[in-house]
Every structure is written in C-alpha cells, then in structure tokens.
Design a protein around this nucleic acid. Structure first.
Lengths: 113, 113
DNA sequence: ATTATTGATATCCTTAAGGTTACTGGCATC
DNA sequence: GATGCCAGTAACCTTAAGGATATCAATAAT
C-alpha cells in the first residue's frame, strides 16, 4: 500500500510500530556503532558513550531477538564473541540518515533564535 | 557538515538528539493527526486512538514549547481553541514518511517467517 | 605474581512515562 | 431541567527504562 492512500489512523499505527522497534535511548546508537565496525562487546561500549554494561547487554539481546544483530562465538585458540548487524538491519539506513539530517538542521534552527 | 564525514560519535549524538525530540508514544501520532486536519482538542483525541485527555494535554504543551504546534484562541460568539502544526514542523515529513515505509516493510518481513 | 581486559550477571535504586478515574465550569441542545 | 459536548485539571498509581555499583571466571599482558 502506498502511504498516500493511507488514513490518518493507518499512518499513526505504522509510525507507532517503527517507534516501538527503535524506541529507547540506545538501540540506534548501538546499531550505528556496530555497523561502523565495532564488533566486540567492549569495543561497542567504548564507541557508545556513557552506556553501561548492563544496558548494553540487555539491548544487544533485544536486537538479537529482533534479528537486527547476530552474535557469534568463534573459537580459535581463545573464545571470541562477535556482534554483526544483519543484512535486514541495513533497511534502517534511510531512516537513520533522515534522523541525522533532521538533527543537524534542528540544531541550526534552535541556535539561530 | 555532510553525514559521510561524521565520526561514529557524531552520528550517535545527532540520532540521539532526534530521538529525544520525537521520543515517546504519542508525539508523532499527534502531529500526524493535526497535520491531516484535526484542530480541536476532542477531534485530535478521536483521531489518535486510545490517547487519554491527560496525556494529550501534556503532549500538546510539549509540542508547543518545541514550536512544532501552535495553540490559538479565537472568540467569535463562543470560544474556540485551535491547534495547528507550525511550518517548521513540516520538516519532519521526510522522517515520518521513512518511518511509515519502514514499518510497512517490517510488517511484511515479520509475517513472512 | 599481579594487574588489566573481556563478556558479561546480580542487586538495588530513581525517575519518568504513561494509565485510571474522577471532576469542573461554560455553553448548547433536547 | 437534564443531558451532552468542549477543553481541559487533579490526584493517584503502575510499570519500564535506565543508572550505580559490585562481582565473576577466563584469558592476556607486565
């Protein structure tokens, strides 16, 4: 269905669906960090400022459940745990880009008054 | 600044800014309802399913503070209170569109497994 | 030997978001 | 005269999100 044919109620339902999946302070930041190359737990933590281990651990599990992130254990000489974004996760890219663009603009708007 | 030149940390900061402004279950749904023509309090409430008066009242105040919505009192024979989205609010349109597109796709993805 | 790093888990706590129910005063309608 | 619509407000409550701190066993570096 095209969005131009949707009723107000339908649009609202869809937007609430998306908000539900990406809701919270940390999910998108974590996805950004992983997709930019962080794969180890501590590495992700270093690249997502101020997140605590408890929250990171919980959010990674959520993202795994939602199939946006994969967790693999590789065993060569010692154990290595690696997180990767799934191919499906990349479908969020246009949305994330729009959010960045909007925030840049918003900051300009706020500062000019 | 273009987003391709940004560091991971900068991208995360911007995305968190946007998340902060549109966070919560109701702000975007309310904006959608108003921009599709609802202008009276009860009318907005009817068009945003399940929202309570208390929450709607509070969210409208927030949106007014953030200059996304205007509240005007007109007095012809009786009092009329009208809410409108600001011109600036329209800058959120591409973001909202992306959210709708993503949710439509996500629903298909989820249902096909 | 000891200190640091990794990938977490456990416990406790605070805050904010949101929901529930009830109510109000002014106007209009039946 | 009662009922209903409008634009809210008030008081209270529940739940979830997130933060603070401590700890752990397994490796790695010094």
């Amino acid at each position: 269905m095209d969005k131009d044919e949707m009723t107000t109620h339908q649009k609202i339902r869809y937007v609430q669906d998306t908000l539900f999946v990406i809701s919270g302070k940390w999910k998108l930041p974590i996805l950004i960090a992983i997709s930019q190359g962080s794969s180890r737990f501590r590495e992700i933590q270093r690249n997502v400022p101020f997140i605590t281990t408890k929250v990171l651990s919980k959010e990674l599990k959520d993202l795994e459940i939602n199939k946006l992130v994969s967790r693999t254990v590789s065993e060569d000489s010692s154990v290595r745990i690696e997180y990767k974004v799934s191919p499906y996760c990349k479908s969020l890219a246009p949305l994330v880009d729009e959010m960045i663009i909007w925030a840049v603009n918003h900051r300009r708007k706020i500062s000019e008054e």
